[in-house]
Amino acid sequence: MENNHKGSELAPSRRDWLKTSMLGSAALLAGVPAQAAPEAKKKEGKRYPLAVSTYSYWHFQQEKYPIEKVIEHAARLGFDGVEILHRQMENETIPYMNKLKRLAFDNGLSLPLLSIHQSFVQPKAEDRRKDVEHTIKCINLATQMGIPAIRMNTGSWRTVKRDANYYKDGKEPPMEGFTDKDAIRWCIDSMGECLVAAEKAGVVLAIENHWGLSSNIDYLLEIYKPLASSPAMGMNVDTGNFVGDPYPQFERLAPYATIVQAKTYYGGGHFYDLELDYKRIASILRKANFKGYISLEMEGKEDPETAVSKSLKLFREVFS
């Protein structure tokens, strides 16, 4: 009985020793101190996926910058995706589009956005119809390339020159005999037609604050909200396209954002200069629970070879 009693006293300490020994061995195998083994690894915060627009390398110069080269640069620098500017495409043939899709895939990159141009601020129904048809054609292009979203514009009256003053105040009077309310109705009706095709294709139409009518954020939301029930309706918020103080306006649009285009202006802007506080912008996006892509539009005069890299470094710091 005595020996059994002693054995029962030793059993717990033996079990404790075995437990400690096994934990220590596991910790040594993992290359960490034994006392650190039981601790759970801290969860890292979400990092927004970062894309680069092909526009960042072109800026509408006479000679188009090849999209293939942008994809290669993006992969080398460590971007997550490439936004394709429709006007920068070499052509619209299936072999060309398949080549871009395959090149992105081989380089581990997504193609999150196709940026197109159109205007629904046109008094003639036949002119609006042409841009509806253009948009539907671009939905088919996006589908072919596996691109899930298209950047959409409202359009503008084009009654004033696009100079430095315009980019400061965004003021643009309607054509004689018409009002901004007419243009808002045209945009809603035309976007509605495009959404029918977009829903079938599974492509999001992300309307942007892209000057013209959309310089007025109230107008932009007046167009967006009646269409928001469509699963294909989205919003692309551009950090550089606000008139006046950008942050309160950005805060209003952030809850609706499907994707964000973020501008930088290294070397001075081609059209205008802005000093944007991206830490503040990142805070607004987190508060709005934004989870999508942030796509760089480097719009400065500095060589993209250096300016795009600088922009990516900045975005990694603030959007991580």
Results as ranks from 00 to 15, higher is better:
Arg158Cys: 11
Ile150Gly: 01
Ser156Gly: 15
Met152Trp: 00
Tyr166Thr: 06
Lys161Thr: 13
Val160His: 09
Arg151Tyr: 02
Ile147His: 02
Tyr167Glu: 11
Tyr166His: 05
Asp169Ala: 03
Glu172Met: 14
Pro173Trp: 13
Ala149Cys: 10
Asp169Leu: 08
Arg158Tyr: 13
Thr143Leu: 11
Arg162Leu: 14
Pro148Asn: 07
Pro173Ala: 14
Arg162Glu: 15
Thr159Lys: 13
Glu172Arg: 13
Lys161Gly: 11
Met152Arg: 02
Thr154Glu: 12
Asp163Gln: 10
Glu172Ser: 07
Asn153Ala: 11
Ile147Glu: 05
Lys171Asp: 08
Gly170Phe: 06
Gln144Trp: 06
Ala164Cys: 14
Thr154Cys: 15
Asp169Thr: 09
Trp157Thr: 02
Met145Ser: 07
Ala149Asn: 03
Tyr167Gly: 08
Asp169Gln: 09
Gln144His: 08
Gly146Arg: 05
Lys171Pro: 09
Ile150Glu: 04
Val160Trp: 04
Gln144Arg: 02
Lys171Val: 14
Val160Lys: 09
Ile147Met: 04
Thr154Lys: 12
Asp163Gly: 07
Asp163Pro: 01
Gly155Glu: 01
Lys161Met: 09
Met152Leu: 03
Ile147Cys: 01
Arg151Asn: 04
Lys161Pro: 07
Arg151Ile: 04
Arg158Leu: 13
Val160Asp: 07
Thr143Trp: 10
Thr159Asp: 14
Ile150Phe: 05
Gly146Lys: 07
Gln144Met: 07
Met145Cys: 12
Lys161Ile: 15
Gly170His: 06
Asp169Gly: 05
Gly155Met: 10
Gln144Pro: 01
Ala142Gln: 00
Gly170Ala: 08
Arg162Val: 08
Ala149Lys: 02
Ile150Gln: 05
Ala149Gly: 01
Pro148Ile: 04
Ala149Phe: 01
Arg162Lys: 15
Thr143Lys: 15
Thr154Trp: 09
Gly155Pro: 00
Thr143Ile: 06
Arg158Ile: 08
Tyr167Ile: 04
Val160Gln: 09
Thr159Gln: 13
Ala142Asp: 00
